[in-house]
Design a protein around this nucleic acid. Structure first.
Length: 560
DNA sequence: GGAGACGGCGCC
DNA sequence: AAAGGGCGCCGTCTCC
């Protein structure tokens, strides 16, 4: 490998170059937030053998200009591009090849490691040591080894890009070109979610106090699973399998007169408060708050293909699991910036609609076209009762259908609904008899052993040796299609955003998109976002009417 | 003292 | 025998 320490010569159009940036002083939890760390070097491989290395930030624009017409091969492009944006203007472009995201398109569910070193081993039979990479965390200057390491990264990205191309189908390209690449550009332009730090801390303190008090009143640590289980068994909960909430409540009803039963409520309450205060407590803001024009914001790491199905995920911190059911008080802390309004768009019954599209189930399509409530209609089919939305029977219907979408057994449904197994089996059979398309989806899944595809053709590999294989075959198609849909909607919003304010999306929660927009644009943007979501859904699922709801308010708790 | 497994639990 | 899919994070426990 030849390493040249100057700007590369101007590259011809449409060739591939490998790019890698190294930053000193980054840590794993914050490397998605390119506000800290010091530039180490930029490596550009114009061939696997020839790498140009830049050590001066002032030369970055010239170096990037030299490769402006090339296709950029980068491993985890989000990191490199976000950092390059600190020193150069990097516009969304089609000429991008993210070896990480493309590997996930190729092998989601097949492999579970996707590091550059993993790909180097798989594709090129090359071993890349990790020790030097860690040196960048503490070093402030390059040494010989680090120079070689940085050059190798760029070279490897390019070689892997070539190797990946050989194994890609037309449809794999399509997923990259029409879903993940554009979603990546959208994610890179997302804003942090503004947070009311004082309110958050007050809430955290209160939860902590309540939790600690309850914990202190117990004879045993409610988080110490092993000891707690033994303790409760000794005091009357015969054969206790675990200490999960529903298990404890059941045991309490089964053995109401025991010593153990007296503790259940306190154990649950204590765990609840302490869970809140630990996950959504002081650390949450201390580790994750940044300031965006003096506004405290949370900037998490949005992962384009976090799930094997192709769904997105989120970490550091995860904003996709902020409590909302039991209490809205956490989401109330995520507020609009001054002079702004929060918009939440939400696909109505996204997965049932996708299920209808995939299965072409006659009854399901009929319901969705009728505009009647899905679960009220299903309650009629399953229980032979006409009900209103407020009827508790509606809540007993949802799990029958949704459970089947996940491959749930009658045993599982019985547990969920708190009924006998044969009753659960009867309900499922009743449902499947009426919904023959859904029944076929489940039947077909039994024969899938390699992979299944989403509506757009994204593969999710199956593990034929796993007892989850069949359930994954059912669910991956639906969940993955939903992931594709939301990502495409996000990408479309990003691409067609032409308001006089920057792209202001702050969250993606699977079937929900959150934005924080200036008051004067709120109605236009709300409508615009809704149109994008509906348009994407209708294109992907032409047999089903699409619906995206709009909510607005001063905080993320505006959904009612 | 750190890594990793596991249990538990928040969301869709 | 297990018994509902997908995540990420926390505390505990075990092991080195």
């Amino acid at each position: 490998m030849n390493i040249y320490h100057y700007v590369p010569p101007q590259q011809p159009p449409n060739g591939y170059v490998g790019i890698d940036i190294e930053i000193f002083g980054m840590n794993d939890k914050t490397l998605h937030r390119p506000t800290s760390g010091k530039f180490a070097c930029l490596s550009i491989a114009i061939s696997p053998e020839d790498v140009y290395m830049i050590h001066d930030i002032n030369e970055i624009p010239r170096a990037m200009y030299a490769v402006k017409d090339s296709i950029w091969a980068i491993h985890n492009a989000k990191f490199d591009l976000m950092n390059l944006r600190r020193w150069d203007k990097i516009e969304p472009r089609k000429k991008l090849w993210d070896t990480l995201l493309i590997e996930r398109i190729l092998y989601g569910g097949y492999f579970n490691t996707f590091g550059l070193n993993d790909l180097a081993r798989r594709y090129l039979n090359v071993y890349m040591e990790k020790e030097t990479r860690d040196e960048f965390k503490t070093a402030t200057e390059m040494n010989e080894q680090m120079i070689y390491y940085a050059a190798l990264d760029a070279s490897m990205a390019l070689s892997i890009c070539y190797a990946q191309q050989k194994g890609m189908t037309k449809n794999d390209f399509k997923i990259w070109n029409e879903v993940d690449r554009d979603a990546l550009w959208a994610v890179m332009d997302m804003k942090g979610m503004a947070i009311d730090v004082d309110k958050w801390l007050a809430l955290a303190e209160l939860n902590k106090q309540r939790g600690e008090e309850l914990k202190a009143s117990l004879p045993i640590n409610p988080h110490s699973y092993k000891k707690l289980k033994l303790y409760l068994i000794e005091r009357g909960f015969k054969g206790l399998k675990n200490t999960q909430e529903d298990t404890l409540i059941k045991a309490m009803h089964k053995y109401p007169k025991t010593d153990a039963a007296k503790y259940v409520q306190t154990i649950l309450d204590s765990r609840d408060y302490l869970h809140s205060s630990s996950t959504y407590g002081r650390n949450f803001v201390e580790h994750h708050v940044e300031y965006d024009n003096d506004v405290a914001v949370i900037i998490p790491d949005w992962n384009i293909t976090g799930a094997e199905t192709g769904r997105m995920s989120c970490s550091d911190p995860n904003l996709q699991n902020i409590p909302v059911k039991a209490t809205k008080e956490f989401r109330e802390c995520f507020i609009a910036r001054p002079g702004h309004i929060i918009i939440v768009w939400d696909y109505s019954s996204q997965e049932p609609r996708i299920c209808a599209e995939i299965t072409q189930d006659k009854r399901l399509l009929e319901i969705l076209h009728s505009k009647n409530d899905i679960y009220c209609e299903m309650a009629w089919d399953v229980y032979e009762k006409r009900i209103q939305k407020s009827d508790p029977l509606r809540d007993a219907t949802k799990p029958v259908f949704l459970g089947l979408n996940y491959g749930e057994s009658s045993y599982g449904l019985a547990k969920t609904l708190g009924i006998e197994v044969d009753e659960a089996e009867r309900l499922q059979n009743k449902f499947l008899k009426k919904y023959k398309g859904v029944a076929k989806l489940i039947e077909d899944a039994k024969h899938e052993k390699k992979y299944v595809k989403t509506i757009l053709g994204r593969r999710a590999w199956l593990n034929p040796y796993s007892n989850q294989c069949e359930r994954n075959a059912i669910n991956s198609r639906i969940q993955g299609s939903a992931g594709d849909m939301t990502k495409q909607a996000l990408a479309m919003m990003h691409k067609e955003w032409n308001f006089d304010c920057p792209f202001s999306v702050t969250g993606i929660i699977h079937d929900e998109i959150v934005a924080d927009v200036p008051k004067e644009y709120v109605n236009d943007i709300a409508k615009f976002g809704q149109q994008c979501m509906v348009e994407v859904a209708q294109k992907m699922c032409p047999s089903v009417p699409a619906e995206a709801k709009i909510y607005m308010g001063s905080s993320w708790a505006c959904k009612e």
